[in-house]
């Protein structure tokens, strides 16, 4: 469709949505890269804590489900995927 003159970055990578200054000469970081790195970081913090909680369960309801570990694993995988997929 040509609803108007296409913007120069209309069909660019989603990274275009979070550019650094073009004149900086660096390839811009994607918004999704930031999403990935944050989730990966959190996942990597949660995983060892969750593993520790297998032997030292926290005083919360449904601690036996080990939600910290499994949630941490999910965030690690999600974060790793986005970090790699949208790496600079």
């Amino acid at each position: 469709m040509s609803d108007q003159t296409p913007h120069p970055i209309e069909h660019a990578h989603p990274a275009s949505s979070s550019v650094t200054a073009p004149e900086s000469g660096h390839r811009p970081l994607s918004i999704w890269f930031f999403v990935g790195i944050l989730c990966l970081g959190y996942g990597l913090v949660l995983l060892p804590i969750g593993a520790y909680q297998f032997s030292h369960p926290p005083a919360v309801v449904l601690a036996e489900l080990h939600s910290t570990f499994w949630w941490g694993l999910g965030m690690t995988l999600f974060g790793a995927f986005y970090t790699i997929r949208f790496r600079p």
Partner: peptide, 12 residues
């Protein structure tokens, strides 16, 4: 939140 989330998850 406090009911279900132990250290780590509570911070999240």
């Amino acid at each position: 939140l406090v009911r279900y989330c132990g250290p780590g998850l509570l911070g999240l």
